[in-house]
């Protein structure tokens, strides 16, 4: 056990000393999580709201399977598909986004948007249908009704965006395939654990893992609060 405790101690030292590389990686990870969750929300909430308003009961058949695949697609698979598309000469090759943070960001938006859309659709479908109908009976326009509905399910939307951020933050499959895990450029807290272990820097790997766990803990706590608020509203 002393080995584990020693590594934890060294890792905490590394974090407390404000290691520059550690901070830079933390910054990249936070930027990535925020930027991908934000864009996933911009794309996913309108799509989910549309689907949720149209859905009367569960979606069946092929569309449901497709939705489920989008929700749980292994990041490695998405990474390879996107990687092929980003190759020079491929349709998105002109972007030159392979081994860049922009490429990772695109991958995580594509991973998170279906989740945001699905959670939004579920919240909208379970949302206060009576209230929306009542608003219509009192003359509310479609835009009024959508705003009313999104306002009513605000906590659920926040929970969806936080779930999207949680999804991306610990992900390494797409990060490594698209970003290449180039130290100092395209590594995140999670992918640095792999880098450091390969370089036999156990304390460094532990420090990055601890920071990652801390971030996940904070986001999970916020997510739990948002979900409870959404549950209390339902």
């Amino acid at each position: 056990m002393s080995f584990v405790l020693h590594m934890l101690g060294e890792a905490l030292d590394r974090i407390a000393s404000g290691d520059a590389e550690l901070l830079a990686t933390l910054g990249r990870t936070l930027w990535l999580a925020a930027a991908s969750a934000f864009v996933a929300a911009l794309v996913g909430i309108p799509l989910g709201a549309r689907a949720g308003l149209r859905a009367h009961g569960p979606v069946g058949g092929f569309r449901a399977v497709a939705a489920n695949i989008g929700l749980g697609l292994p990041p490695v698979v998405l990474g390879i598909i996107l990687g092929l598309l980003l190759l020079p000469g491929a349709p998105l090759g002109g972007l030159r986004w392979l081994t860049t943070m922009n490429g990772i960001w695109l991958a995580q938006v594509l991973l998170a948007a279906p989740l945001v859309a699905a959670l939004t659709a579920a919240a909208v479908a379970q949302g206060p249908a009576n209230l929306v109908l009542q608003a219509r009976a009192l003359g509310a326009s479609p835009r009024d009704r959508l705003l009313l509905l999104l306002g009513e399910i605000r906590p659920a939307l926040l929970a969806a965006v936080l779930a999207a951020a949680l999804l991306g933050i610990g992900e390494v499959g797409a990060v490594i395939i698209i970003g290449g895990n180039v130290a100092g450029h395209t590594n995140t807290l999670a992918s640095t654990v792999v880098l450091d272990l390969a370089a036999s820097d156990t304390a460094g790997a532990t420090a990055h893992a601890l920071l990652l766990l801390g971030l996940v803990g904070i986001l999970t706590w916020m997510h739990g609060r948002a979900r409870r608020a959404a549950g209390a509203a339902a």
């Binding site: 859905a55 569960p58 979606v59 449901a64 399977v65 939705a67 489920n68 695949i69 929700l71 749980g72 697609l73 292994p74 990041p75 490695v76 698979v77 390879i80 598909i81 991973l111 989740l115 699905a118 959670l119 659709a121 579920a122 479908a125 779930a163 999804l167 992900e171 390494v172 499959g173 797409a174």
Partner: peptide
């Protein structure tokens, strides 16, 4: 990647056929 995708589609189709509620049925793990 292709074989993994195929396996995953099978699992997703199986899960969907059982599904009563439209909830996120799996967490992304990598």
């Amino acid at each position: 990647g292709l074989v993994l995708l195929a396996l995953f589609v099978l699992v997703a189709a199986g899960a969907t056929s059982l599904q009563h509620r439209r909830t996120a049925w799996t967490q992304l793990r990598s």
